[in-house]
Amino acid sequence: MRETILKTTGLTKRYKKFTALDSADMTVYSGDIYGLIGRNGAGKTTFMKVITDLTDQTSGEYELFGKKSSDTAGEKRRIGCLIENPAFFGNMTAWQNLRYYCYQKGITDLKQIDRALELVQLTEVRNKKFRKFSLGMKQRLGIAFALLDNPDLVILDEPINGLDPIGISELRETFLKLNKEQGITFIISSHILSELYAVANRFMFINNGKVLKEISKEELDLECSRCIVVKTSDTKKAVTVLEQELGVSSYKVTSSSEIRIYSDEAAPDIINQKLVGAGVPVSGIYESGVSLEDYFKTLIGEVSE
């Protein structure tokens, strides 16, 4: 049985008239890497701020490690996070900044600092002042801070901001390794689905403060994979024809008038011929393959309309 790490019910946050988070329900199980996807201002950061206790929710509840939101102070040590921009003291070096937080957290083993810096490839600049850091280095130090003290849950808000492609892939490997070996659960937000796709195994789409959809990677693959879409008013009959006469087994009835076929066992023209031959009214048949970004756009579009 996997442990429930985070569970929110009807979490809502209002800033004066603006609703940043609109009754968000989500459950995070241990060992998952959660991808939080939404456009800028969709409510990702607000969501993270609420669950990390940076701000109080207007209504709704959340549970962290099985503890109610009013009682999470004791569980804070199990969370590492980077929310919005990384913030550290400019007059201190990377190492000193982490040393400061080691004091605060009560970490006695200073090798942990070096380990955290190594995970984000900052070992070489450990004695450089934070003020002189580049954007990418700052971001890395923020991630190092989140990984300090062996957390069980790591919350990262747009962690790949300002990083170069090589840096991104290195970090991705680090996240995957930590997830696999130490079972660290991640919640990572981004506005670019393809970036999250490479690391997350569950996705949550968020727009205008609402949780639109929660989907596993397998389901997302299925949604986005190449397929043949058959439009027909008689899906039941069409399915029997597909199965018995064409031997098609991987398909999905996506609505009462639409079937998606994922295998390429049969070409569209043959399918069409067989269906019509069996007396199934076919109103349209075409090949389709949505890219991740298109999928994301349709999802958001569906709601804003």
Binding site: E3, G106, I107, T108, D109, D149, N150, I184
Partner: peptide, 24 residues
Amino acid sequence: EKKTNSLVHSSTGTADRLITEING
């Protein structure tokens, strides 16, 4: 009691070495 990566922390800094050993 729980499955966690967390270690023992110091709260006053009077037994840091002991804590480091326990954590090791």
